[in-house]
Design a protein around this nucleic acid. Structure first.
Lengths: 109, 109
DNA sequence: TATATACATTGCAATATTACGATGATTAGA
DNA sequence: TCTAATCATCGTAATATTGCAATGTATATA
């Protein structure tokens, strides 16, 4: 199959999985870290920074954009990408909720 | 292709992506949440709880186990799974590092 | 020992992801 | 207007993921 039965799960579970999937590639992690550090970037910079083809990076950027993590603004002939602070903390909160749900002192193990 | 060029990235980036990939499925999120809430579970419980086949759930459990997030101990004829607290906070820290890297007041956007 | 129970594994079929060359679209400057 | 630069999109090949039926393995009990 290869198709996820998302109707079996809650919207929160699906949303968290969806976001995790976007983070589930080192190139996209690298792009985000580069964005954080430089607070702006263009596709061309990333082709230099990472060793991937321009088309590939453009595709990764689109996935990040579709989840709302980054926004792009046309800057003449190039495009400036940056992180959406609102969405960023939204996603941060999603993960925090998952992780903090587990009590530090567990009953078993 | 469908193959990730992991040699282009740092070990930290690959590790974060690897962990995110395990979380990138609602069934695995659901399993973890069920584990957190009940602090133990067996495959059979999950077949009831989620609507997936036993083989499918066993596969998801294996992925969680391979990343070290959960541990299983044989309990007679059934198996008790539970979250590994050490690994859990390790992974929590991985994400926190990513998220906290972004300053609250950004320079652009 | 034989049988039932509970998971794990194997072997598919369907679909998704990753990567990139080729090509399109848009903009700045000659 | 023409051209170069920059990014997006399309098409395609290679590989990965998801789900399940069938089967294997181990344990407890009759």
């Amino acid at each position: 199959m290869g198709v996820t039965k998302s109707d079996l799960f809650t919207e929160q579970q699906n949303e968290l999985a969806r976001v995790a999937k976007v983070l589930a590639h080192p190139a996209r992690i690298a792009i985000l870290q580069y964005l954080i550090q430089s607070n702006t970037c263009i596709n061309g910079d990333l082709v230099q920074e990472l060793g991937l083809a321009q088309a590939t990076i453009s595709q990764h950027l689109r996935e990040l954009k579709e989840t709302g993590i980054i926004k792009g603004s046309i800057e003449g002939v190039s495009v400036n990408y940056c992180i959406d602070p609102i969405r960023w903390s939204e996603i941060q909160h999603l993960f925090e909720t998952l992780f903090s749900g587990f009590p530090k002192i567990p009953g078993c193990c």
